[in-house]
Nucleic acid binder design. Sequence first.
RNA 1: CGGGAUGUAGCGCAGUUUGGUAGCGCACUUGUCUGGGGGACAAGGGGCCGGAGGUUCAAAUCCUCUCAUCCCGACCA
Length: 570
Amino acid sequence: MRYSKTLLPTLKETPAEAEIVSHRLMLRAGCIRKLTAGIYTYMPFGLAAIRKVENIVREEMNLAGAQELLMPMVQPADLWRETGRYEKYGPELLRFHDRHDRESCLGPTHEEVITDIARKELHSYRNLPMNLYQIQTKFRDEIRPRFGLMRGREFIMKDAYSFDVDDEAAGISYMKMYEAYKRIFTRCGLSFRAVQADSGAIGGSFSHEFMVLAKTGEDTIVVCKECEYAANMEKAVVKLVKIERPEVLGDMEKVETPGKRKVDTVCEFLGIEAKQLVKTLVFKADGKIVAALVRADREVEEVKLKNLLGAADVEMADEQEVFDATGVPTGYLGPVGIAVRMVADQEVAAMQNFYAGANEKNFHLKNVNLGRDFQVEAVGDLRQITTSDPCPECGGQLETTEGIEVGHVFKLGTGYSESMQATFQDKDGQAKHFVMGCYGIGVSRIVAAAIEQNHDDRGIVFPVPLAPYTVIIVNLGIDDEIINTAAEKIYEDLQAAGLEVLLDDRDERPGFKFKDADLLGIPYRVTVGKTFIKSGTLEIKNRKDGTLEELTPEETVKRLQTTILAELSK
RNA sequence: CGGGAUGUAGCGCAGUUUGGUAGCGCACUUGUCUGGGGGACAAGGGGCCGGAGGUUCAAAUCCUCUCAUCCCGACCA
């Protein structure tokens, strides 16, 4: 492609709206332009990168035995009512009425539509397993779209759905996708981790999120330094460290703590450590008051609390609500003699002779013990994991990093097939519900994540497999016949060698062109300038490491062809 | 939906406090020079100052209402 004929509007200055690197660079490099909040036009250069991702996804999905189809974006409300999601989905689902006043919605995901296809078209176990996928623009009316393509309302997603005869077969389908995903993200040149997204309530870990490791990620994940364990922070299982303490249970006594409400001040006043104190935090679970007990130096993980309680929604109660429910001012709350539902972190159950609030202003209790002095409704893993906790898998050291979720594999089971009566006839002649799985990849988000992970202060540094062009030729002598001819020649030859080449044939000054080449992040730059007249060589620059080479045109073609091919087959 | 901020030329901004009829840098057009890291000079084009209403002789500026966008918290690929 000739730069002079391309719509590739680069920006020297950064538009004020862009906050994170990928968004900023994608705007500056002319990849995207915003139409309205969370909705972007993919400009030719950005679209080329998206297509690269799509093709990798397509190849690997097909290789894994999945078939591509394309489902409608506009969907009838009735279909969504079958699964109850038309009511449940919330305002993210954009609903509207068509000219006949039929209720419709824009598909944020396609379980209903695909299950409808399955119940109509798949009738026998002989048809299974079946895995169908599409690459499509999704619409989710996000509460707060932000960060450009990272969280848009409109975005390109690959979604796949598998249908199997039973649980075991579904597990195989799941693993196939899991492996395909690893290949996809590896081929995209991303540094990523597959993290467990389910704490194991169903039994196995049948949900994984694929996270690209990047500082700007919206999720925090914990990663083991020694083994492959990785999990979303809010779901990471805390392994209880057994402490052998054959202590004699002391008699519970009241101690005065005048005006000491905070953990720090209480500990300082009593001359104890926070790990000897238990704090009582009050939450509203689906509107009902529940107290959660954790060691004073720990944090309650609301997601875990939610799961333990089986609640749909959990939030912290405010001071007034706490007082209304318990009659105790915050700071002196404790588990002994309090009339609310209580749950405790497993660590609290293992503690002996601890301190806690006395449910009386200016007093705490000493030598409190669970079981003897109070009872709780449930004990479980309630607290947030820390880097000083051992890896739940191998006991190794943990660290935290930020991650961007680019993929999610999930075993659905028979929820959808049951609510939509999607059955097939099995070997034994019985009608059975399909066991389903669903698998998503954020295609447009991958491009943003890749830039988040691969850039420097001069611009994007595209991984070769995602680069819209792999080579940019900088012609520095538009008016010089020798240089011009050489630039045209190498342009032809590189294309003939099967490479995607951008020829910068604009009448601009060298500095200007170099800056653009850096900004665009094209992996290899070939400069045709005065050195060609002097020595007949071209300069090849590697965008990533900055290495320079002087080669003849023939050598250049060979060198680029082999190195780029090598990069692509990694 | 709560909290904060911003809307002035394609982009980045000043001007708003103290009303007097719109400016700077970049980009764009033309010309000359220049030619290995966003070059120089000269001459141009481009703005119902987000929208509506009001106050006033006079509004980008003051008042009221609205719309939009961005940032911080609950969702997710």
